[in-house]
């Protein structure tokens, strides 16, 4: 995979833009998943992915092939999403009122339930909106996206201790939020 991507990058650097399309097609789902989970909004996530890919294209000359392309690209995508998140937070504070019936449907005893993008966004925003940016990012990247601590450190530029502390506070706040949501299934757990 790494060899394939190295040869594609060589083609892009030589001026073959169609090769870049291949990269976008191969990695768009992964990038979208990451930005979506950070932003909790489908359209904003798509815009962040597009911006991120342009930044990837601009920075390709500085990419070193001994480094994992996926990690490098994820870092750029995460930064594009973080920039967008800061803009959104400045522009509008999203007010969400958790709907007990909706939560009831989503959590009906089966954690393997399939959710639509809208529903995922709804839950992410219920849990993460209102958290300080660093706590939100650490929680979403570490717990929801499932990135390793080292990867989160590389993306956010925070030490391991600060990541742990942010994660602790984020989880605490999220637990308190969950406690405040009152729906029948949760009482049965």
């Amino acid at each position: 995979m790494q060899d394939r991507i190295t040869s594609i990058i060589k083609r892009i650097v030589d001026g073959d833009n169609q090769a870049f399309r291949e990269v976008v097609e191969s990695y768009q789902q992964q990038a979208f998943s990451l930005t979506f989970r950070i932003l909790g909004d489908e359209e904003e996530a798509k815009d962040a992915v597009q911006e991120g890919f342009i930044k990837v294209w601009q920075s390709l000359k500085s990419y070193r092939s001994d480094y994992s392309f996926t990690s490098w690209m994820c870092r750029i995508m995460a930064h594009a999403a973080i920039d967008r998140l800061r803009k959104i937070r400045r522009q509008k504070e999203i007010q969400l009122d958790p709907d007990p019936e909706r939560m009831n449907t989503l959590f009906r005893g089966n954690p393997d339930v399939t959710m639509e993008n809208k529903e995922i966004a709804h839950i992410i925003r219920i849990l993460a909106d209102g958290l300080p940016v660093k706590q939100r990012l650490v929680f979403l990247l570490r717990d929801i996206q499932g990135l390793k601590s080292v990867e989160v450190q590389a993306i956010l530029g925070l030490s391991e201790t600060r990541i742990k502390s942010n994660l602790y506070h984020a989880r605490k706040s999220v637990r308190e939020k969950i406690d405040r949501i009152d729906y029948p299934e949760r009482r049965q757990w």
Partner: peptide, 27 residues
């Protein structure tokens, strides 16, 4: 509760409906 919600979100990855939209816009 937290674990359950987290695993629910982990199992449900957001998916792109139109796979041509982003490549087209990016190009």
């Amino acid at each position: 509760s937290l674990q359950k919600i987290v695993s629910l979100l982990q199992n449900n990855e957001p998916h792109l409906e139109d796979l041509n939209e982003i490549p087209k816009n990016v190009m």
